[in-house]
Deep mutational scan, measured.
Amino acid sequence: MTTFKLIINGKTLKGEITIEAVDAAEKEKIFKQYANDNGIDGEWTYDDATKTFTVTE
Rank of each mutant, 00 (worst) to 15 (best):
M1T: 14
M1F: 13
T2M: 11
T2C: 15
T3A: 05
T3V: 10
T3Q: 07
T3N: 05
F4D: 01
F4W: 06
F4K: 00
F4R: 00
K5A: 03
K5E: 06
K5F: 13
K5D: 09
K5H: 11
K5T: 13
L6G: 01
I7A: 01
I7W: 03
I7D: 00
I7H: 02
I8V: 11
I8Q: 00
I8M: 07
I8E: 01
I8Y: 10
I8N: 00
I8T: 00
N9R: 07
N9M: 12
N9Y: 13
G10Q: 03
G10P: 01
G10A: 04
K11I: 15
K11F: 13
K11Y: 10
K11S: 14
K11M: 13
K11R: 09
K11E: 12
T12H: 12
T12A: 09
T12E: 12
T12Y: 13
L13D: 08
L13M: 12
L13K: 05
K14V: 14
G15W: 15
G15Q: 13
G15M: 15
E16M: 08
E16L: 06
E16D: 04
E16W: 11
E16K: 05
I17W: 13
I17S: 01
I17G: 02
I17E: 01
I17H: 04
T18V: 09
T18W: 14
T18C: 15
T18M: 10
I19H: 02
I19Q: 02
I19R: 01
I19L: 09
E20I: 14
E20L: 13
E20T: 12
E20S: 11
E20N: 10
A21V: 13
A21T: 11
A21H: 08
A21D: 04
V22C: 14
V22M: 10
V22Q: 09
D23L: 04
D23R: 05
D23K: 05
D23W: 12
A24E: 12
A24L: 13
A24W: 11
A24I: 14
A24P: 13
A24N: 14
A24K: 08
A25C: 11
A25M: 08
A25K: 07
E26D: 14
E26S: 08
E26M: 07
E26T: 08
E26A: 07
E26P: 06
E26L: 09
K27H: 13
K27V: 15
K27G: 15
K27R: 14
E28W: 15
E28Y: 13
E28P: 03
E28F: 14
K29P: 03
K29W: 13
K29A: 12
I30V: 10
I30A: 05
F31N: 01
F31D: 01
F31C: 12
F31S: 00
K32E: 07
Q33L: 06
Q33R: 06
Q33I: 05
Q33C: 13
Y34N: 00
Y34G: 00
Y34H: 02
Y34F: 12
A35S: 04
A35E: 02
A35K: 02
A35Q: 02
A35Y: 04
N36L: 14
N36I: 13
N36K: 14
N36V: 11
D37I: 08
D37W: 09
D37F: 04
D37Q: 07
D37M: 09
N38D: 01
N38A: 11
N38E: 04
G39Y: 07
G39Q: 05
G39D: 05
I40T: 03
I40R: 00
I40C: 12
D41Y: 13
D41G: 10
D41P: 04
G42E: 01
G42H: 04
G42L: 08
E43T: 10
E43F: 09
E43M: 09
E43Y: 10
E43L: 10
E43P: 03
W44T: 00
W44V: 03
W44Y: 03
W44F: 04
W44R: 01
T45N: 05
T45P: 00
T45K: 06
Y46T: 02
Y46E: 00
Y46S: 00
Y46L: 00
D47S: 02
D47F: 02
D47T: 02
D47H: 03
D48K: 04
D48W: 05
D48P: 08
D48Q: 06
D48R: 02
D48V: 05
A49Y: 06
A49E: 07
A49M: 08
A49F: 06
T50A: 02
T50R: 04
K51E: 03
K51P: 02
K51C: 12
K51H: 12
K51R: 11
K51N: 09
K51Q: 08
K51W: 09
K51L: 07
K51D: 08
T52Q: 02
F53R: 00
F53Y: 07
F53W: 07
F53Q: 00
F53P: 03
F53K: 00
T54C: 12
V55M: 07
V55G: 02
T56W: 11
E57F: 14
